[in-house]
Write a protein that binds this DNA or RNA. Structure first.
Lengths: 143, 143
DNA sequence: CTGCTTGCAAAGGCTTTGCAGAACA
DNA sequence: TGTTCTGCAAAGCCTTTGCAAGCAG
């Protein structure tokens, strides 16, 4: 059995557990969407998730994909990325890490965590605390 | 004469020069929009720029505000910020600096440049070079 | 004159919502 | 049986564009 096959039952069982552990009830559609998202480390737009998810089996509606991705992000299962104005991207890795972004190709890729460090000594404004740090390194074609 | 009055002629002359030096022909509307934007260090949405610009004198259309802000950003006169999916923000300071962002209040504020440092040793992907680094520190209400 | 700019309205693209039916507990 | 979830279509919002009229050089 191919362990990366999103349709094998072991993978499916892990996804169900993962959803439950994040307080998300594992409906058929949510499991399918989460399987697509979490198959490998990747950065996908909602539209891409929709397309990939619907390559097999019973299709999931666009509204459900958008709503589920929003839910997953709120529950901390995936991370929502704000790299440009065009569309949201969703990152299957939630551990702290940063990104290169090429606006021309709309490609996002992780920066090796070893090679970037952010040092912050500033106090957050009154009555607020830091919920996350996002570093986006914008790229352009050389020359 | 109040030197911060956006309608005094000295300020206006500086704006015209500034636009010219960025390769932007200084039409009446663009000077008005740039005056609003550059009056002080600030972070404004297009809608806010529209409202502020049209508080005095002959109104500028929404399309012209959007197009001009896009032009200014492309020419390096202001900086476009990608902090959330809702809308773009424009920053009147173009020198490298980073931001706190409170998604609940939609407030952006600068982080004291002294108190944040980013160390990047990663090589950008092939045939690309770094065009800018954006650090956004997301905030949430304390507790 | 000739090309750039404006401004209105309309279109466009991404995302959310209303609501009826289906699934679930 | 009551609550939650889905999915279609429609609406909503920010932003861009088409095009005719205006302005600048």
């Amino acid at each position: 059995m191919n362990p990366t096959d999103p349709h094998n039952s072991e993978h499916r069982k892990n996804i169900v557990q993962l959803l439950r552990s994040h307080g998300i009830s594992p409906t058929v559609q949510r499991v399918k969407i989460a399987s697509t998202m979490l198959l490998r480390p990747q950065h996908l737009s909602a539209e891409q998730v929709l397309t990939l998810t619907n390559q097999t089996g019973r299709p999931v509606s666009k509204a459900t994909v958008y709503n589920s991705l929003g839910l997953f992000a709120r529950k901390g299962l995936i991370r929502e990325l704000f790299v440009d104005q065009e569309r949201a991207f969703y990152d299957s890795s939630t551990h702290p890490h940063h990104h290169f972004y090429n606006p021309l190709t709309q490609e996002i890729c992780d920066i090796d965590p070893e090679s970037v460090s952010v040092n912050l000594n500033a106090q957050p404004p009154a009555d607020t605390e830091i919920s996350g740090i996002e570093v986006v390194v914008h790229l352009r074609p050389k020359q």
